[in-house]
Simulated assay, not measured.
Amino acid sequence: MTLPYISATAEADDLGAGRPLPHLDQDRWMRPYGVGPWRVGTAALALMLASYLLFATLIMAAAQNTRGGALCLAVALVVIAAALRLLRVGVWVSGRGLRQTSFFSTVTVPWRKVAAVRTAQQPVKVLGLPRTVQGQALIITRKGGEPLRPQFTDHNADFLGRVEAFDIAADAIEGWATELA
């Protein structure tokens, strides 16, 4: 018994054979890997905290405590914004360039200014904390010789415990750089 979704997927793979870029729309910013479980879990816990804060806001509004309700609402909105920003952290690619998004800043480098994209063994931070261990990092070097800060590592919130996923994602980003740089 053939399953229609499997044959459709196989046909789609055959249509894209020979194309190094995984996405047909090169003008759209995309992350060439899935968000990791540590990042999703942290954002889910933050959103759960925000839901409790919003419920506290409702209780305070019902009790006519407007200052406390406004404070809880403001804190809940900050927690929601932080959770959404946490989910956006990572390396994004498009036909225009490479974008490295961290929690507080974003650096966009056009492909013409990217000198090299490679993986290297070096000390990396575990989940962004001060503790470092030996691991792999994706090093993105600009044409001025200045590398970007390595936030794409096999010990960050997207790839901790998923070394194969790190290798696949790093190869995908290197493929984009080879094709478009």
Score class of each variant (00 low, 15 high):
Leu45Ile: 04
Thr153Ile: 05
Gly68Phe: 05
Ala10Ser: 11
Gly69Asp: 08
Arg85Gln: 10
Ala63Ile: 09
Gly144Ala: 09
Gln121Glu: 01
His23Leu: 14
Ala61Trp: 09
Leu86Gln: 06
Phe166Ser: 08
Ala12Ser: 14
Val91Gly: 00
Leu24Thr: 15
Leu148Lys: 03
Leu98Glu: 00
Leu160Ser: 09
Leu24Tyr: 13
Ala116Cys: 10
Arg99Thr: 00
Arg88Ile: 03
Ala50Glu: 07
Pro150Glu: 00
Leu58Gly: 14
Thr66Asn: 08
Ile139Gly: 11
Val124Cys: 14
Thr66Cys: 02
Phe103Asn: 02
Arg96Leu: 03
Leu160Ile: 06
Ala115Glu: 05
Ile6Pro: 00
Leu98Thr: 00
Thr9Phe: 12
Leu138Val: 02
Asp158Ala: 07
Pro130Lys: 12
Val89Cys: 04
Pro130His: 05
Ala169Cys: 12
Asp171Lys: 15
Ser7Asn: 15
Phe103His: 13
Phe159Asp: 00
Asp167Ser: 14
Pro32Thr: 01
Pro110Tyr: 11
Thr132Asn: 10
Asp167Asn: 13
Ala50Thr: 06
Thr42Glu: 07
Trp92Thr: 00
Gly90Ile: 01
Val163His: 14
Leu87Ala: 06
Arg85Asn: 04
Ala165Gln: 15
Gly144Glu: 13
Thr42Ser: 14
Pro150Ile: 09
Arg162Leu: 12
Ile139Asn: 08
Gly69Leu: 07
Thr2Leu: 09
Ile140Ser: 03
Arg96Asn: 02
Asp13Cys: 11
Trp176His: 06
Gly36Leu: 02
Arg99Gly: 02
Val109Gly: 01
Arg39Leu: 09
Gly41Val: 00
Leu160Lys: 15
Ala157Thr: 06
Gly18Ser: 14
Leu98Ala: 08
Gln134Cys: 10
Glu164Val: 14
Trp38Asn: 15
Ala169His: 08
Ala170Tyr: 02
Val93Asn: 03
Val109Ile: 06
Arg131Ile: 05
Thr106Cys: 15
Ala169Lys: 05
Ser105Phe: 10
Ile6Phe: 10
Arg149Leu: 14
Asp171Ser: 15
Gly68Pro: 05
Ala62Leu: 09
Val163Trp: 10
Gln122Lys: 12
Leu21Glu: 00
Ser51Ala: 15
Gly69Tyr: 06
Asp158Arg: 12
Met1Cys: 02
Leu98Val: 03
Pro123Ala: 08
Leu138Ala: 05
Ala43Ser: 12
Ala56Arg: 04
Trp176Ser: 03
Val40Gln: 12
Thr132His: 13
Leu58Cys: 11
Thr2Ile: 06
Val40Asn: 08
Ala76Phe: 00
